[in-house]
Design a protein around this nucleic acid. Structure first.
Lengths: 344, 344
DNA sequence: CTGAAAGCGCTTACAG
DNA sequence: CTGAAAGCGCTTACAG
């Protein structure tokens, strides 16, 4: 017995009950007598019936969908999504599925009003924001989101007077661990690659950690070895080239992301320098690529699985009006060959 | 002027027109007088109004959403999604956005009925299937999809009597190019790593190309150098170890995916063999990692951007009842350092 | 435990 | 060019 597009009314007719009872039975309402419920469910299954989500959503004002917004200001229209954030997708989707939510993907560049449109159009109940963005333009969007009563959580730094909840790692600690390790390995002239302007608060925090580790070790960070770089491989290459061209000596590099670190490694190798023999390199993120480059990259790992799960739990908490708080996670240093040493 | 959750009726009241006219104006109907339309649209904008997609979808039986189903039989529950397929996500999302469709992500493992549920529940208008799957179990799902009148397209081989449309590359040609190149480089004992059972028709095709290139060169492929391996790095490592342990000499490897090739390279290097000095390696896919390993991996590139766009165009074509045909794309060899030579 | 009824917010023939 | 009305397929008070 097949019906083209069965509705709950079709099930009702077949089961000899009202459409309301079908609806209750399918939602496992305890109000429905167990035998009735079983009969209805078996008919539904046989007809390959699934509740029409549009209709249900229209009634309940719930889409059971979370929109995942990926943005990347430094991307400059590049088609590839930053692999670090992409690698979170599996965990996020899985965590959402466990809570019975679907994930809708959106890329920032595509929509002007992405930040409001999804929830206002009832396509999603809330948003997860993922990316290394320009904090200045970013802040405006967040304020607009808050003003429009949109529920959202951010994977990123926890910042004063920023609306919404954040899940992020302790970037100061991460920067400190990276620099501390290099200093312990005997490196004294550690270049810092990364943009620390107000645009990138997480990178600025990583820099603060880098400085903190120097202070603790009684070593003065060398201002001339600090180079601005946004999160692109090419900019890591350029940063190293400009350092080498400047003639400033350095024996290590702490790059604010793995992407930059990998570019830096390429440039060093192209100029005939050995890693870690001549220069040690440490990155940040531990993206999948980090363990595959040669030498394997020492880096500060963010626990993306935990972060992904927290992001989903938080947004679902907001949707379901439960108390939710921001989470600060402790990153961990992963020592590999690029800084030439065992963990101390 | 702000209204909590404005509806088209609110706009109508403010504009002094009927709700029907608001609906028409917002969909840019030419029936509506231009001035009226402009007035309505400006009010809508001011109120931050967006059409309720549930309501619209309920009326039109259209969700304007495509479900993207990622599966990976060899994944064995691994959390990470195959990076090759993941790298298509950006292109797919972008192509879909251009046609005004959203992308819903789903992982195969999460749902038993994934193949039918999405369209039946009106959450998506059609499906895109992505992954290297076990064709046997896979075929059942496809038949079920077809039986349920679900619209879908597959990224994969074009196979006789398989329901649905496929977008895929000419795997025979790809395998031929890989082996041809190695033979031209003077390699005679080319190991083949990959599963060529009926489970993996695309890999079997790549093997056919490998054999074809041998035939054309008058070289006999060596049966003992053919090793089964599913698409996991670890299995590439194991395949090479078993080859080395077997004592069979070989001077090149053609691995059926980059993932396997990268595992193979790791194993070779761990055993002290030089690439390409002792053994040349060629992979398949050109995933992002391929150009970052050392030595950089020569591989057969599938044009994922084109494939992504075709997939989206095809599924949208099916949804909108336009004629759609399967596409076979020609892959191209990308020569890098791992096979030690310039393109011939 | 079940049913009749209202209503979620749209789109679209139909009528003018 | 515009409006009144029907209806998409559900969920959920309300009544019994």
């Amino acid at each position: 017995m097949k019906i083209e597009n069965p509705t709950s009314r079709d099930i009702a007719d077949l089961a000899g009950v009202s459409q309301a009872t079908v609806s209750r039975a399918l939602r496992n309402s305890p109000q429905v007598r167990p035998e009735t419920r079983a009969r209805i469910q078996s008919i539904a299954k046989e007809l390959n019936y699934f509740v029409n989500r549009n209709a249900a959503g229209l009634r309940t004002h719930h889409s059971n969908t979370i929109a995942l917004l990926l943005f990347d200001e430094t991307g400059r229209g590049q088609a590839q999504i930053n692999p670090f954030f992409l690698s979170m997708l599996g965990y996020i989707t899985r965590a959402a599925a466990r809570l019975d939510y679907d994930i809708l993907i959106s890329l920032q560049q595509l929509h002007d009003d992405w930040h409001i449109e999804y929830q206002a159009s009832h396509r999603a109940d809330g948003l997860i924001l993922l990316g290394y963005g320009d904090y200045r333009t970013y802040k405006e969007k967040l304020d607009a989101l808050a003003a429009a009563n949109t529920r959202f959580v951010i994977f990123g730094p926890i910042i004063e007077d920023q609306p919404g909840n954040s899940i992020g790692c302790d970037n100061v600690s991460g920067g400190r661990q990276a620099a501390h390790h290099l200093l312990k390995m005997g490196r004294k002239r550690i270049a810092f690659l990364g943009n620390t302007t107000r645009r990138c608060p997480e990178f600025a925090d990583r820099y603060r950690g880098y400085v903190g580790a120097h202070d603790a070790a009684g070593v003065k960070p060398i201002e001339a070895l600090k180079v601005d770089a946004d999160n692109l491989e090419q900019l890591g290459i350029e940063a190293v080239n400009s350092l080498l061209d400047s003639g400033q000596a350095f024996d290590a590099i702490f790059a604010v992301t793995d992407v930059i670190a990998i570019g830096a490694m390429k440039a060093l190798q192209a100029r005939g320098l050995r890693i870690p023999g001549d220069v040690s390199v440490v990155g940040f993120d531990d993206m999948p690529l980090a363990s595959h480059v040669t030498p394997a990259l020492t880096t500060v790992r963010q626990d993306i699985r935990l972060a992904s799960e927290r992001l989903v739990e938080s947004i679902v908490g907001l949707i379901e009006a439960e108390p939710v708080k921001s989470t600060l996670m402790e990153p961990t240093l992963v020592v590999r060959a690029s800084c030439g040493g065992q963990r101390l």
